[in-house]
Design a protein around this nucleic acid. Sequence first.
DNA 1: CAATGTGATGTACACGTTTGCATCCAGTGC
DNA 2: GCACTGGATGCAAACGTGTACATCACATTG
Lengths: 343, 343
Amino acid sequence: MDRKPTMTDVARVAGVGTMTVSRVLNESAPVSAEAAGRVYRAIEKLGYRPNEMARALRGLKSRTIGIIVPYLYDSFFATIAHAINTVAKENGYSVILTTSNEDPDSEFAEAQLMLQRRVDGLIVIPADGHRSRLSRAEFDKTHIVTLDRPVQDRRFDTVLVHNQSGSKRAIQHLINEHGHRRVFFIGLNKQLYTVRARFEGYRRAMIEAGLQPELSFKCASQEETSAILADVIREKDPPTAFFCSNNLTTRYALRALLDLGVRVPEEVALIGFDDFEFAEVLHPTLTVVRQPVYEVGRVAAGLLFDRLKRDEFPTAGNKVVLPVELILRRSCGCRPRVRHPNA
Amino acid sequence: MDRKPTMTDVARVAGVGTMTVSRVLNESAPVSAEAAGRVYRAIEKLGYRPNEMARALRGLKSRTIGIIVPYLYDSFFATIAHAINTVAKENGYSVILTTSNEDPDSEFAEAQLMLQRRVDGLIVIPADGHRSRLSRAEFDKTHIVTLDRPVQDRRFDTVLVHNQSGSKRAIQHLINEHGHRRVFFIGLNKQLYTVRARFEGYRRAMIEAGLQPELSFKCASQEETSAILADVIREKDPPTAFFCSNNLTTRYALRALLDLGVRVPEEVALIGFDDFEFAEVLHPTLTVVRQPVYEVGRVAAGLLFDRLKRDEFPTAGNKVVLPVELILRRSCGCRPRVRHPNA
DNA sequence: CAATGTGATGTACACGTTTGCATCCAGTGC
DNA sequence: GCACTGGATGCAAACGTGTACATCACATTG
């Protein structure tokens, strides 16, 4: 009476064979209403729950997918995970989640572990490495969808956003609407795909306007960012606008400007990539390129479940690129209408 | 040649019995160096990985724990999840993650599902309901640790923070150091344990100072918060300080004050509960009660793995309460030294 | 009526692993 | 030489479920 009740227990109590129980549970074959009733009562009485381990072992699906993200405390990744989890639930799937800490080796190891756990599919935000190890033979028979950053392997489905055109548009806004000529790009990491793509958009916008691209990638910490901005601001003809490649650099830059006593947007304009909740609370409110974070996660999960349903391994995966949106607030110099509550 | 290699395959290639392979993998019994070598080579050659499903089924542990959080896009919960995942990895465990959407029924259903998946233990941030369904008989033989919010069931281990004394100290700071007499408490949800506890600290501080507690709980959206603050600010003798019960209300309140054109801290002071990354970037920088979020997750995971190692079900669980810290910045009226980078 | 289908059920086995138990070999003490 | 230890190994069973197959009653068809 200690162990969890099993299908055999249910069958015994209901006075039927184990198969009848199985058939009732899965509706895999017709069962007489009378027998089904007895089975249901027995299940209720014993508090029986099928053992998913055994089900998975028997060769069906584990009804589990794996997610690998670089970090979880980043709101971008957390939102992605939330979206995927929601879709997984809708499909009756569970989610095993882990982090790669932006390390390809760790990512590979975690993916292997997930395979040992026999996940039916994998959604990965590839770690920021030159080439991922996910393409290796071990994963030949695994459905993989990548996210946010592409991977060389053409077999995977991928979901991206229009990084390049998004940042290009933001820069053009600064140049055309506000007359900026020295716009400074704040990067984070030369390797990171998203940063490279966003830089490329920036670069093209500048070149097309006949301007000189200026950039810095050494902004991985508050200290580095503060030091660089302090130098740049002191030049005799300093930049009049900054473009931050992501959330993190936006925060670092704002903090640095605050410490330096440089007023935004009066003295310099600033646009960030990726919207966040406090962007509307900051003073000034922040103009950003917004990417549809939740949607990215949802679409990626959708692609994975499509694959799982078909269960075929095409030689070329789907590639979905979602649009981004320039949200004009005050930090770029615009004066959008502020909503005043009932007053 | 299509299927994943199994232990039997390895045994055949290595010219040994399956048991020798198992023993090599688990080091559960002595194996001759010569045989072990052959096994290792066979594993390497075939790319064999043990099937965790089969292992779990055979009655050992699933080496998987479950986490249930209300939401994932909240940075507090995401950080908790990250901490737990990190500790789980250290212990060779995987993590199944899901969300309850703050709904006790959903929480119960998800917990059941996790049991079907045969998790070895469960870490739950109990959904905001009067009483959780986690105490029911179904979970008698499951190791459960709760987090952030307590549960009636004394058998569970629990990790909390000093909500009450933390908010009391913040209020006392406003009263004693800055001379405030009308301090307004901004709640969120009467049910939510953390909000109630923080309110109680506020109430006691006010009473002890001979002041009148004033509060509002109808601040679950930006609109509600804005409307209430607009009313309150227009009173003939308006509050001179606000205390926000959590991250979300802090954001709503700041936004409302910004829209109303009320300057912080010149016209009103503000302290929030729970620190966040943008608190130092806001203008003014934000005074907050900081709770050790990551640590809460780490400790909870530690408690769970202690239980798993012992594998006993005590009648009374451990209760750990971690300290919080008042971080003085500018929004309360203090003028902390600002660090100016190399200048 | 024999042949054939169809619905409802049970029996055996397989999934891949680990746990008992049995086995085998070598060395030791008498 | 014999029984005994003890290390190294294999065999069968079991974990809980689903698939394949067999069975059986009964209805349908010619």
